[in-house]
């Protein structure tokens, strides 16, 4: 009896819904800035991850040889690059097409007067000056670790 009553009430509710239709909004719309926000947040996340990796390798006694010191340097440099990139993206967002001269050409320039935002944009545009040394530290660190491991394996 109780089961029949439940089925009856559920059926009446479904019929009522079908008889009174309206806007559903089943999917959330994604606007244009969302991609940039996600990208910026990914930089923050990556920075946090690298700082954590640096902190963890520093406090782990087993990870204290030369190779790991280079890996720790990589973490610092690459976390710095992430912050630089984040600032660069923000500064680019704040500039207008009128702030550039001969855009889309090899003579492209930042138009004067040079404001701090423009200067920051200019500096952050050369982020590879941090990115490449960071990767170089990673390579040296891994090379050192691989040599140690090979020496250990040869014993």
């Amino acid at each position: 009896m109780k089961m029949l009553s439940t089925i009856r009430h559920t059926g009446l509710f479904i019929v009522a819904l079908l008889l009174v239709p309206d806007h559903a909004w089943a999917l959330q719309p994604h606007g244009a800035p969302e991609g940039l926000y996600v990208h910026q947040m990914s930089h923050v996340l990556f920075t946090g991850a690298l700082i954590y990796l640096y902190w963890h390798t520093r406090r782990t006694p087993e990870l204290s040889n030369k190779g790991w010191h280079y890996l720790q340097l990589f973490c610092i440099l690459f976390a710095g690059w992430n912050m630089l990139a984040l600032v660069g993206h923000e500064s680019a967002r704040l500039l207008n097409p009128s702030d550039f001269i001969d855009k889309a050409s090899w003579n492209e320039q930042v138009a004067g007067p040079i404001t701090p935002i423009k200067m920051v944009y200019f500096i952050t545009k050369m982020d590879h000056l941090l990115y490449v040394p960071a990767l170089l530290a990673l390579v040296i660190g891994l090379r050192s670790l691989s040599k140690d491991a090979q020496r250990e394996a040869d014993k």
Binding site: N107, E108, G112, I114, M126, D127, L129, V132, L135, L138
Partner: peptide, 24 residues
């Protein structure tokens, strides 16, 4: 200062990207 040329930044960008790929 009237304008800042982005040519050095672009050159660094191209070279740095290549070096980054190689080092990675």
């Amino acid at each position: 200062m009237n304008a800042l040329s982005l040519l050095p930044a672009n050159i660094i960008d191209i070279c740095g990207s290549g070096l980054a790929i190689f080092l990675s």
